[in-house]
Computed example of a mutant assay.
Amino acid sequence: MLEGNRVSPISVRGFAVASATAVTAVGSVVGVASGSTAQPNDAEATAADSTLLADIPAGQLAQVQTASLTQQADTQAIAADVSAKKVAEETARKEAAKTAQEKKDAAEKAEQAAKERAEAEAKTKAAKASGPASFPVQSSYSIAQIQAMARSVVSSDQFQCFSNIVDHESSWNYRAVNASSGAYGLFQALPGSKMSSVGSDWQTNPATQIKWGLNYMDSRYGSPCEAWSFWQANNWY
């Protein structure tokens, strides 16, 4: 029964208190003064029955309980912070690994593309050096033969543009002559004699004309496709 601000003596099995400053554990109260009977086999019986916690002010008891709850909350908060930090670190590690792999893949693709370009350029140079010259000289040539000559020296990615220009200029007639200007051959060179820089047989050998035409497009425009873009805009090149 309450007497003023104090509590009656009570039988104690143990009362544990802990605060942020390491309050000493003394057990937890499990009995009441009115007729509480200790169990013989209770592991805490001996210590509890011999101890009486009397005259503890109610306000002090509340403070101890509050300190204990506060410490528990702080401990839980610290554990949550540690867990969150581990999750953040693992996420950052995975993201860094992903980024590194993406960069590696991009570098490998770029390296492969550069290798393929170099191989294509090497093939084109080799073809330019020996392509048309490998065709035997004939008294006349079919369009299919002339186109085969062109394919042997013009890279596959540029051939369609090259062909478009020849289609519009001469329809693949290596003896075509413009009645007004005198422009001559597959590319309607003006004058036609400028093709002699490649070979003296420029009038009769389409291989000579093809070599000259490709050199002209590369030197003046950068490539057959660049030459074709100019032609489309101006109807000449």
Rank of each mutant, 00 (worst) to 15 (best):
L190T: 10
Q232R: 08
A54R: 11
E44R: 15
T46Y: 11
V64L: 15
F230C: 05
Q72H: 14
T66Q: 12
S197W: 01
L53Y: 02
G182P: 06
G59S: 15
G182V: 00
V30K: 06
K128S: 08
W228A: 06
A133G: 07
K115D: 11
I210C: 03
K128Y: 08
P206I: 02
K194A: 06
S11A: 09
A88I: 00
N173T: 11
T51C: 04
Q188L: 04
R93A: 13
N164A: 11
E226P: 03
A126W: 05
T99A: 15
V17D: 01
G213Y: 02
D42P: 09
M217V: 05
E108H: 08
A150P: 01
A62Q: 15
E108T: 12
S36R: 12
Q60A: 13
I146Y: 02
L53G: 02
S11W: 00
Q145H: 10
S19M: 01
S156K: 13
A118E: 10
A80W: 05
R13G: 09
A126Y: 09
S11E: 10
N5T: 03
P57K: 08
A233V: 10
N205I: 08
I10K: 04
I146G: 03
L214G: 02
E95N: 15
G222W: 00
A96T: 07
Y141N: 00
S142E: 05
S170R: 03
A106I: 09
F159S: 03
A179K: 15
D49S: 14
V137T: 15
A118H: 06
K104N: 11
A118C: 12
S68K: 07
N215G: 14
A189N: 05
S142R: 10
T204G: 06
A38F: 12
K98S: 13
A97N: 14
A233S: 15
D157N: 15
V177Q: 04
S200H: 03
P40Q: 05
P136N: 08
A127H: 06
W212H: 06
A58W: 05
Q209E: 04
K94H: 12
S28A: 14
R6L: 13
E90V: 13
M195W: 03
A179F: 13
F159M: 02
A106L: 09
K85C: 06
F162Y: 06
G131N: 05
L61W: 01
H168G: 04
T46D: 11
T37D: 07
W228P: 01
V32A: 14
R6W: 09
Q112K: 14
S19N: 14
V153E: 01
N215T: 07
A227F: 03
A100L: 00
G59H: 12
G59A: 14
A126C: 10
R151D: 01
K194W: 03
Q158D: 07
A73C: 03
T24L: 00
S181H: 06
P57W: 00
T91L: 02
A45M: 13
A20S: 08
W236V: 06
R93G: 09
N41Y: 09
N234P: 04
D49E: 13
